[in-house]
Design a protein around this nucleic acid. Structure first.
Lengths: 279, 279
DNA sequence: CGGGCCGATACCTCTCGGGTATCGATCGGC
DNA sequence: GCCGATCGATACCCGAGAGGTATCGGCCCG
């Protein structure tokens, strides 16, 4: 199987429409139809059920969609990492961090790493919530900080860096902000304060409230009184003036972890991880 | 990048010889030279240093070799898993087990799974030591039993099933077999009894003794008085007549784990894992 | 210094990926 | 119930590029 065929199939499987998929791929519809049909012939399996009015995935098609995405990410990663290994000007590491999260830990880590004798330059790549795994898997980053149980750690090698409780971050002057402590049930369905939505481990977003990409957006929306959030303790240090932080007794503990792609044989990654574990 | 290019590059990188690589790929040498040169042009990096008498990998080439292997395994996995999902006759799972290891646990697991209401048929794939990760990654198996710290768990999702001590397995009548307990140092450099070699997590094999692929081979060689082994407690149940088993006090504990490929969304895998965790 | 090994280059062929035109089926509207 | 619109499949053509053969040019060895 060639990556071209996989790209074509993924496009059709996502769009569920040959015409639109062809347009997205920048080719005409007939070659796309033929390519997918040929893929099905070679695999000996129907991947799509077509009824001239609609296209749907067969169970085998579902399997191939998931597997093809992973395989294409691996190929992309190969390309990107090789390019970076070859370009002499930047031999450093790329560290992916959720924008706005773990700021204090990140600062300490970068300082400690820079003080190492064999320090390699580190670029910080700020990504949206839940995107760290993706950038790690497709080669845009070499290491990432993520948070259990929120982020998807599947397929990554991981070391734990620390655990902390969670606090509710509320708009200035909100009645709940005056209490000394909350439980999750207090925050369930507060009138006029919907929970925000962000990309979860399963890739989908859930909840009724506003859609949010990173912590900065989230804090801004809280400042505007449009939502609230339950976040790790360590965000206290970066709360804008006026927001209220209240411990949430029964919120699950958050573990910050450092992760890297499984077959990374890079000494530079190992060095950064070692530094992180010493903090 | 197409998988064809990656396959070509991997062949050359392994053989370090364009002629032989071309032969292995079933093509002529000139197209291979051109394809690799074109890949280098597209990546903007030299991958190989060629000197008409020898071929060597550049650092970027080393990176691409590792990444390309992973990517090609992912593509193969996509193909195999889709084929199996499509062929109606065998909708079951493939469970990879080191030949001869964890026999008791395996029997219990298969029994318990068969007793489940939604039992899916399970094929057992016996593989050589250290090959479980590979067959999981390239789609030949869906689940595997492996043993920490011996097997390479990088990139796999894992649940622990149990921990046990280790025993030394010695030929009948060997003097060490009469002692009530040993320490690793006792086994270090026993005259006439070299330690066996098998594929380790790093892929290489080390040690001076005979080369071994699985437990059955290993036990046979011990029976012949040619080597010894330090193995998990649970092999006691399958020792052939005459072999001596002696606990090793300071050997690292072995944890048996059940593992599956990270993006497996399969309900069948989840069911088998749940059954295993109940044992 | 000459022969043999090996990768690169030149040049040819033909497969196959991609484009246009069109068909056939299905669904919605009148 | 018919007509038109939509959408995937089919027919047919063209050109890029993958692969083959012949050959060159550098390098080590005898």
């Amino acid at each position: 199987m060639e990556t071209r065929e996989l790209r074509y199939f993924v496009a059709v499987a996502q769009e569920l429409h040959f015409g639109r998929a062809a347009q997205r791929l920048g080719i005409a519809q007939p070659p796309l139809s033929r390519a997918v049909a040929q893929l099905e012939r070679r695999l000996g399996t129907a991947l799509l059920t077509r009824s001239s009015r609609s296209v749907a995935l067969t169970p085998a098609g579902e399997v191939l969609l998931a597997e093809a995405r992973a395989a294409l990410a691996a190929v992309e990663a190969a390309e990107r990492r090789t390019r970076r290994a070859g370009s002499t000007d930047r031999p450093g590491l790329v560290l992916a961090v959720k924008a706005g999260a773990s700021a204090e830990l990140l600062a300490k880590l970068l300082d400690a790493h820079a003080a190492e004798p064999d320090a390699v330059p580190v670029d910080v790549l700020l990504v949206g919530i839940g995107e760290q795994g993706q950038v790690l898997r497709d080669g845009r980053a070499d290491v990432a900080l993520l948070h259990r149980p929120f982020d998807d750690l599947a397929g990554l090698d991981v070391e734990e860096l620390g655990t902390e409780g969670q606090i509710a971050v509320l708009p200035a002057g909100h009645e709940l902000g005056t209490r000394p402590e909350l439980v999750l049930a207090d925050l369930d369905g507060v009138p006029g304060l919907p929970a925000p939505r962000w990309p979860g481990p399963s890739g989908v977003t859930s909840g009724p409230g506003p859609q949010v990409r990173d912590h900065a957006q989230l804090l801004q929306l809280i400042g505007l009184g449009r939502t609230f959030a339950v976040l790790p303790d360590s965000v206290r240090g970066q709360l804008p003036e006026g927001l209220r932080a209240v411990p949430v007794a029964d919120a699950p503990a958050v573990t910050t972890v450092i992760a890297w792609p499984p077959h990374s044989r890079s000494l530079a990654v190992a060095g950064l991880v070692r530094t992180a574990l010493r903090l």
